[in-house]
């Protein structure tokens, strides 16, 4: 027996149950029958039996139980059945939409899985440096992107990027950025070169109202210098352990994708042991606490409370704290990256 035939016999069985219940109820008016009817209606709905078929079963039963029903009552059944046809169509339509929704959800689930593969599977290890990163989507798909490029000569490139908008369009754009970066390989390019190259790719390939912000930095473990350039990205922080303060990183370059000949000036900072670079996406600086945007000062104090921890633990704790402060509502994708000099 096929599944369809199985369903069909189950439908017939349920309708038979209803007919029996109805036949008994019209004679006895027992209250427990009403409870049984409630239970039966749940099974009907589980089996997706449309409302017009229920009325049809009802009418058929009444006619066979009472062959001498007044003609007026019989006529009224015709009207009722006619009325129910529209409900039946609406019910089937809803079924179709629910199936379609399930399909879409499955597709998105696959896309979410694919998007995960666009992000690096692990943080690189570099001597004398501790790196931690967390990236959490507001919805299923994220517009935040980060990447590491291991130059293999004691330096690594680090990118954090925020793609305009959220959801699927942002995710599609993210794959473009990933492959544009991949094609640059592991050659030790300067931040200015990387951003100039990506700017041209974005400018050529995206909708005019689409843009991407990015900070790209190169950390050299031989001299502990961090050289960086930004493309309109939320300024990161430089934590100085000796002074226990935060300096804002500079933001001197234009967002990617607006002007083909944009230049990306570089800045360099030197890290002492226990100093750290903190980079994030605008989902962090634009999160709202009690309806107000979080103050940058508040954010610095918050980060300071965790900066002594190992980098990965610190980013997770900072994210968790922000999550609590925003009342467990993340409106935008959040990415936090900490790079700390340990030796």
């Amino acid at each position: 027996m096929t599944a369809d035939q199985g369903d069909l016999s189950m439908d017939i069985h349920l309708k038979k149950l209803y007919e029996k219940l109805l036949a008994s109820y019209v004679k006895t008016s027992k209250e427990d029958h009403l409870y049984n009817a409630q239970q039966l209606s749940k099974w009907f709905m589980e089996k997706r039996i449309p409302p017009d078929e229920v009325v049809n079963a009802h009418v058929r039963t009444m006619k066979s139980l009472f062959p001498d029903l007044p003609a007026e009552v019989k006529a009224s059944f015709d009207l009722l059945l006619e009325m129910m046809i529209g409900y039946g169509i609406a019910y089937r339509e809803r079924e179709k939409l629910m199936n379609r929704q399930r399909e879409l959800e499955n597709e998105i689930e696959v896309a979410v899985g694919m998007q995960q593969t666009l992000l690096p599977s692990k943080t690189p290890s570099l001597e004398g440096v501790d790196i931690g990163v967390i990236s959490v989507a507001a919805n299923q798909m994220s517009g935040d992107y980060y990447n590491f490029v291991d130059h293999g000569v004691g330096s690594i490139g680090i990118a954090i990027s925020d793609i305009i908008g959220k959801g699927i369009p942002a995710a599609l754009c993210m794959s473009m950025i990933k492959y544009a970066m991949d094609r640059l390989g592991t050659q030790p390019l300067s931040p200015a070169e990387v951003l100039k190259d990506l700017n041209i790719v974005v400018e050529r390939n995206v909708d005019p109202s689409m843009f991407i912000t990015m900070v790209y930095g190169v950390y050299d473990s031989r001299n502990h210098q961090f050289r960086y350039a930004t493309a309109g990205h939320e300024p990161g922080l430089f934590y100085r352990a000796a002074e226990q303060d935060f300096l804002d990183l500079k933001t001197r370059g234009l967002v990617l994708g607006v002007s083909r000949d944009a230049e990306y000036p570089e800045d360099t900072i030197s890290l002492q042991p226990h100093d750290a670079i903190v980079l994030f996406s605008d989902g962090v600086t634009e999160c709202r606490v009690n309806g107000e945007f979080i103050e940058r000062e508040t954010l610095k104090q918050l980060i300071q409370g965790y900066i002594h921890m190992p980098a990965q633990e610190a980013v997770e704790a900072i994210h968790q704290k922000l999550y609590e402060m925003t009342n467990y509502k993340i409106r935008d994708d959040q990415t936090i990256l900490i790079l700390k000099r340990i030796g």
């Binding site: 305009i164 005019p208 843009f211 605008d282």
Partner: peptide, 15 residues
Amino acid sequence: IDSTGLGVLIGAYKA
């Protein structure tokens, strides 16, 4: 104004 809104202004600027 969020980044989508900014994108609209950028689109207008480019046009």
